[in-house]
Nucleic acid binder design. Structure first.
Length: 566
RNA sequence: GCGCGGUUAGCUCAGUUGGAUAGAGCGUCGGCCUCCGAAGCCGAAGGCCACAGGUUCGAAUCCUGUACCGCGCACCA
């Protein structure tokens, strides 16, 4: 519909400009906020006014005189400074109800010829402890985004990168080992550098069941720490998977950083970079802004990321000759490219913001500018309890885990609340308040709308109303403001979905859900659905069915239940 | 110092890439269930869209600068 209106205007404008040396501006239709301004509005007369040196309202008149509208247009009006407002025939808009009921969960979805294979990497929380709320936000965002992209025909792989290599795993193993000895009666002083959390003791206990202390002590020290590290990572990953499952999130692929080292992919990558002269030996300048006392100029192999947009070149090998995290991460992204993905999307915490350019630069360099990951940074969740900040540092060991939060406020409420905010805005989340207001939570507003529609549909069935087939309903009787507003919301769904997917912004879906719920609640109060007028009852039941369907479609993308009763 | 993100109602946040009278949830105040689900609806109060310039028919939105908040800035991940 929108496209055909745009075409009609396009032709009229081109005709009008045939005699002028003026390029045709892009015709963009918008949905006005106010019902009085029509179903669609076009502003094309205004930019033309400047170029043609005439008044915008006059130009709009000329356009309207020349335009050849499709059947569905009821009337048009020139308004304000020169808007062309387009009013459609009510019946033609209401046709959407039939489409929704026929297409069901496919309404709003597209099968684009531009469909891509997308690798969406998210969460990737370090396997050194439980997930906290910030991870949860990234998890919810990623899962909803994956659902969203799938509606546009893309094939999405959900992927988790396990950072199971490097010094933090050594620290983890060490911490667990100390706790194991402590559990066996040894008096130890726990180092500041260790992980102090309770969960470490749980893992220690688990490992002592796995094998006796005597057996652990009999092992060679390196082998023991390595084994403890492996088992600890495994334990943490199990906990992380459970946390994710509690939110209804599942991954298709887990890629282990360690495996990239063991398979030789990292080493191979380093060699490749050297062969392509993307690496040279050099010294990093001292860091800016932060006082570093023990700075020593040190010669290292540096990746020429500055040639691809980075601020400084980045080391790929440490002083001891082992690969940096950066090197492994490049190898990982390169691996994604080789697996044949058309697009890579990474969701990271804001604390990794400084890391974006260098990874993008590296992948660009490796693929001859062919590919680079899109990185979404999700800002911190500022967790408070009764107005007091709650520390979330893993090192402090006093953080509130994602599990606790999900248990307190429920998976649906967590998911929905996280999705009502844009990723780039910080999010203040107060636990006391979330608990206190759990009955007044926005998520219930949306879910209640769905349960309510379902209740009406049930009621109709109970009262023996025979629902007509969608094709046989007379939709011309849906004329009230509330009905029109609701239809226009339903009609907007595919546009919302497409835009949300294009911009990688699933919060738009949550936003839409609220709008649709509002429109439905208003309609419900203003219009009685089941009533004496047979035709009107049929039309409104069809509308109710359509609302239920679209609410469900939208909530499903957000990973939130659409209950039939509550 | 530099980079990224933010600043909109008492609180938490939207604002359809520059449009018409800036919205929602929570909170406050006042109405609405003999009637399909009141977890709802209707109404009211509440705004210098951080500040100052600029761009143009038109700015919360774009550009420049300033202020404040968050995150990051070698040899960790």
């Amino acid at each position: 519909m929108k496209a055909s209106l745009e075409r009609a205007l396009q032709q009229a404008v081109e005709q009008l400009l045939a005699d002028h040396e003026v390029s045709t501006p892009a015709i963009v239709l918008t949905r006005p906020k106010h019902k009085d301004h029509g179903d669609y509005a076009c502003n094309v007369a205004m930019p033309l006014a400047g170029r043609l040196g005439r008044k915008p309202r006059q130009i709009a008149e000329d356009i309207l005189a020349a335009v050849c509208w499709p059947e569905a247009v009821n009337k048009t009006k020139i308004a304000g400074p020169g808007f062309i407002n387009i009013y459609l025939r009510a019946a033609s808009e209401a046709e959407v109800l039939r489409r929704i009921v026929q297409q069901k969960s496919a309404y709003g979805c597209q099968t684009s010829e531009k469909a891509q294979r997308i690798c969406l990497e998210f969460v990737s929380a370090n396997p050194t402890g439980p997930m906290h709320v910030g991870h949860g936000r990234g998890a919810v965002l990623g899962d909803s985004l994956a659902n969203l992209l799938a509606t546009q025909g893309h094939e999405v792989t959900r992927e988790y990168y396990i950072n199971d290599a490097g010094v933090q795993i050594g620290v983890l193993a060490n911490s667990v080992w100390l706790r194991m000895r402590e559990l066996c009666g040894e008096l130890i002083s726990f180092p500041d550098a260790g992980y102090p959390g309770e969960y470490i003791i749980d893992i220690a206990r688990q490992l002592l069941k796995h094998q006796s202390m005597a057996q652990w002590q009999a092992m060679d020290e390196d082998a023991r720490l390595q084994r403890i590290g492996e088992l600890s990572v495994e334990a943490n990953m199990t906990a992380i998977r459970e946390d994710l499952a509690r939110l209804g999130i599942h991954f298709d692929v887990f890629t282990s950083e360690k495996s990239l080292h063991e398979s030789g992919q990292v080493q191979q990558l380093v060699q490749q970079l050297e062969a392509e002269d993307l690496v040279y030996r050099g010294c990093l300048p001292p860091p800016k802004g932060k006082e570093v006392k023990d700075y020593q100029p040190q010669e290292q192999p540096l990746f020429r990321t500055t040639d691809f947009g980075d601020d400084v070149d980045r080391p790929i090998l440490k002083q001891d000759g082992t690969a940096t995290y950066f090197a492994a991460d490049i190898a990982y992204h390169y691996d994604k490219v080789q697996r044949g993905f058309d697009r890579m999307i990474d969701i990271w915490g804001a604390d990794h913001g400084g890391y974006v350019t260098r990874v993008q630069a590296a992948v660009k360099a490796l693929t001859g500018l062919e590919a680079q990951p899109d990185v979404l940074l999700v800002q911190m969740v500022n967790l408070t309890r009764g107005g007091r900040p709650v520390r979330m540092s893993k090192r402090a060991g006093t953080f509130v885990t994602l599990e606790e939060v999900v248990r307190e406020v429920g998976a649906d409420a967590v998911r929905f609340n996280f999705m009502t905010r844009r990723a780039e805005s910080q999010f203040d989340f107060d636990l006391e308040e979330a608990k206190l207001q759990s009955d007044e939570n926005p998520v219930y507003y949306a879910q209640y709308a769905h349960a309510r529609v379902c209740a009406v549909l049930r009621k109709a069935k109970e009262e023996g109303v025979q629902q007509l087939a969608a094709e046989d309903c007379d939709l011309s009787c849906l004329r009230s403001d509330a009905e029109q507003a609701l239809i226009s919301r339903l009609l907007a769904w595919p546009e919302v979905l497409q835009k949300a997917a294009e911009r990688l912004e699933p919060y738009r879906v949550a936003n839409y859900v609220m709008q649709l719920a509002t429109a439905f609640h208003a309609f419900y109060h203003q219009c009685r659905i089941i009533q004496d007028d047979e035709a009107l009852t049929q039309a409104r039941l069809l509308m109710a069915e359509a609302v239920a369907q679209v609410l469900k479609n939208a909530l499903t993308i957000l990973g939130v239940q659409a209950p039939e009763k509550m």
